[in-house]
Design a protein around this nucleic acid. Structure first.
Length: 420
RNA sequence: GCGAUCAUGGCGAAGUGGUUAACGCACCGGAUUGUGGUUCCGGCACGCGUGGGUUCGAUCCCCACUGGUCGCCCCA
């Protein structure tokens, strides 16, 4: 038996890394005052169709959708924002005295794709959403948080790519210009782009097939169509980033795959050598119409999401070792039939006192037990034999120095607590 | 969804249409009757992803399935 395609088991040895990273991200959220929200990993299919957008690749070909026994169409969530917004609306968080509502989530997402390194069918995203504010400062805050997530772990080879998609008016004007621009050459575009021309011409801009078409280079840029409000908003976001000393590059073709974005859009990529075909570590942007689209009051919002898998890949690519403590405080070695019961009671007392401790359960020879203790990186080995038992003592060996001394059994716990 | 490639013990990795499937690491045991990390010696696949087929005979040939990897598409 093998696990389903595109899934992975995280085994001891790597789960420690995940725990470390997840704890870091939770701490980071706390610093920026984002609170955790946990939503179901499956939702009504309609949520994603409306929230993410019918024209997106995610909805068109990447969703894990099935019919449940009650004949409902259910989809495993392909991303986090739609669910968070649904929950925000359902529980009327727009009425919360604390505005904006600042939330973070961490959990598995599902997309039906051909897996390769950094792309799984089940993967884990951490993300944040700030709902209820249309202030360029919070756009910058979300971007700053995203960058900190990587920087705090020691990553250096990062590139922040920024763009503005403008407000509805700007987008509509741009959309018209795009249609006018590409319609004359429609027949020369790829089939995807021909449909995009009708439904979402913006996405023609990040088509890789038609990248070299001459109409691409001369295509109208959204930045030329930003109205005063949108341009000013974008300028302020940049000013905040400058003030925060967060470097970025503008990419006027950065479009993002989801329909709900407007104004600020950004991606963080890895520059690291040998990172592979997939370089996007995280992405996000502003989605001012989404809450209303999902039945709530008109509420602005902005968020981003990162993949833990890709974060870990980036750490590998930059040869960053996480400071994970893999040692064990004590390993109890007992030999002789008389000693075994006593050893078990000592072990229990150690653990109850908060000492990490283990013993052999394979009936191994003493030498092999020492090997096991060594492998487990035990800092101290407590040796209990017939001799020690008779004298009511136990030998405590420091595995690093090799020093060993006898300690009275009734003072063992306080002694150990003193040296670990 | 398309294309390519791969699948041998816990891990890495050789190999052949036909008696005992290299080797390295790890692990286990011994040299050391009660003390690890070094060294030496020994042990460790009724089995070569799963299911069919070809053949006197297949781990090695063919087909399907499952899974990995890489590229395309797209993203996190």
């Amino acid at each position: 038996m093998k696990g389903p395609r595109g899934t992975q088991d995280l085994l001891p040895g790597v789960t420690e890394k995940w725990q470390y990273v997840e704890e870091k991200l939770k701490g980071l959220s706390k610093n920026y005052n984002y609170q955790e929200i946990r939503t179901p990993i499956f939702e009504h299919t309609e949520l994603f169709q409306r929230g993410v957008g019918d024209t997106t690749d995610i909805v068109q070909k990447e969703m894990y959708t099935f019919t449940d026994k009650g004949d409902r169409s259910i989809t495993l969530r392909p991303e986090g924002t739609a669910s968070v917004v649904r929950s925000f609306v359902q529980h009327k968080l727009f009425g919360s005295p604390n505005q904006p509502v600042k939330l973070f989530y961490i959990g598995p997402m599902f997309r039906y794709e051909r897996p390769q390194q950094g792309r799984m069918r089940q993967f884990v995203q951490y993300g944040v959403e700030a709902l209820g504010s249309e202030d360029p400062a919070i756009d910058a805050e979300v971007i700053a948080l995203a960058m900190s997530a990587y920087r705090e772990l020691g990553l250096k080879s990062l590139k922040l790519v920024l763009n503005s998609l403008g407000d509805n008016e700007s987008r509509n004007n741009h959309r018209k210009a795009l249609i006018d621009h590409f319609s004359p050459v429609k027949d020369e575009l790829c089939s995807d782009c021909q449909t995009r021309l009708e439904k979402n011409p913006l996405r023609i801009l990040d088509c890789k097939k038609d990248r070299d078409h001459e109409a691409m280079a001369t295509a109208p840029s959204i930045l030329e169509f930003l109205n005063d409000y949108s341009r000013d908003y974008f300028d302020q976001v940049k000013a905040y980033l400058d003030a925060m000393e967060i470097p970025y590059v503008i990419d006027k073709n950065l479009v993002r795959g989801l329909d709900y974005y407007n104004h600020t859009a950004f991606e963080i990529m890895s520059d690291a050598a040998g990172f592979g075909a997939i370089t996007t570590l995280s992405g996000g942007g502003r989605y001012n119409g989404l809450v209303q689209e999902l039945g709530g009051p008109e509420t602005p919002g902005i968020g981003f999401a990162l993949s833990i898998e890709r974060l870990l890949m980036a750490l590998d690519a930059e040869n960053i070792e996480l400071p994970i403590d893999q040692s064990l405080d004590c390993y109890v070695i007992a030999f002789g039939d008389e000693t075994k019961v006593k050893a078990a009671s000592i072990l229990q007392k150690l653990r109850e006192a908060g000492v990490q401790a283990d013993k052999d359960y394979q009936d191994k020879k003493m030498k092999a037990q020492f090997r096991a203790a060594d492998r487990l990186k035990a800092r101290f080995v407590l040796v209990l034999g017939e001799e020690e038992l008779e004298n009511n003592i136990i030998a405590v060996k420091n595995m690093e120095t090799g020093d060993q001394e006898n300690i009275g059994l009734n003072e063992l716990i306080s002694y150990i607590k003193g040296i670990i």
